[in-house]
Design a protein around this nucleic acid. Structure first.
Lengths: 114, 114
DNA sequence: CGGTATCCACATCGATACTG
DNA sequence: CAGTATCGATGTGGATACCG
C-alpha cells in the first residue's frame, strides 16, 4: 500500500467511507502517527483523515493516544475489536490484488462494445 | 437479508457503492429478477438499482439476460469472477453479524461521553 | 415488468488557510 | 506536528413520473 502504483487506491470495492478500510490495514503492524497515515493514503486531506479516524474511534475500532509533548505526538492503534475487522478487510484486499486485472479487462471490453 | 431487521442494511462497512455488495450476496443461490432484488434492498429506487447492476455487469461480476417475452423478464446472475467476490463479501457480512452489537455499544458509549 | 427521464437534496470530498 | 475552520465542487442517492 505504500507503493504509488498500489491497486488498493483504485479498487472499486473499498470499504465504507473510502478511507476507513485502508486505515485499518495501515494499522496492522502497530500504532501509527497522523502524519504516517497520510503517506499511504495519498491525497487525503487532514480534514478527511481526521473525520475518518474519529469515526473509527467512535465505533471502537481504534484508540487515539495524545502525548503531551512539544511538538505534539498522537498515535492511533487498533483495538481488539478493530483487529477482528482486519481479517475480512484483508480478504477484500487479497481479492483486489488477485482479480483487479481481470475486472479492468472486463470493464474495458464492456466499454469497447458500446 | 430478507428480514426487515437485518443488520446488513446498517452496517458501516458496506462495500463500494452501498448496494453492490448486497446484490452479490443476493445472487448467491442463483439468478434473480430485477423485482426480486428490490425486495431485500429495501428502499432502493429503480434508478439506483439499475446503475448498480450496470456497474457490476460492466466489471464482469454479473450477467444480464433478457427474455423476449410479454411481460418482459430479465435475470441477473453471478459470473465465475463474481463468485470469487462472493467470499470476501460474505466474510464482511459475517463480521457485521458477529460484531455489530459491540460496535453499536461502543458508539453509544462514545457519544454519551461527549 | 423492467426499466428511463428529470430534478433535486444532501453528504462527501477536497483545496486552502490558519492555529495551539 | 496535528490538527481546525471555511468554503466550494462534485456526484451519489433518492423522489417522482412516465414508457415499451
Amino acid at each position: 500500500m505504500f507503493d504509488p502504483a498500489c491497486p488498493s487506491g483504485v479498487t472499486p470495492f473499498r470499504i465504507g467511507d473510502k478511507w476507513a478500510g485502508m486505515v485499518v490495514l495501515c494499522l496492522e503492524d502497530g500504532p501509527r502517527r497522523f502524519s504516517e497515515l497520510q503517506v499511504p493514503l495519498r491525497g487525503v486531506t487532514p480534514k478527511v483523515l481526521t473525520e475518518t479516524l474519529r469515526a473509527l474511534e467512535r465505533d471502537g475500532m481504534i484508540t487515539r493516544t495524545a502525548y503531551p509533548e512539544i511538538p505534539p505526538r498522537v498515535e492511533y492503534e487498533l483495538t481488539p475489536l478493530g483487529r477482528t475487522l482486519f481479517e475480512p478487510i484483508a480478504a477484500c484486499r487479497e481479492w483486489a490484488n488477485e482479480h483487479l486485472p481481470t475486472l479492468l479487462a472486463a470493464r474495458e471490453s464492456f466499454d469497447r462494445a458500446r
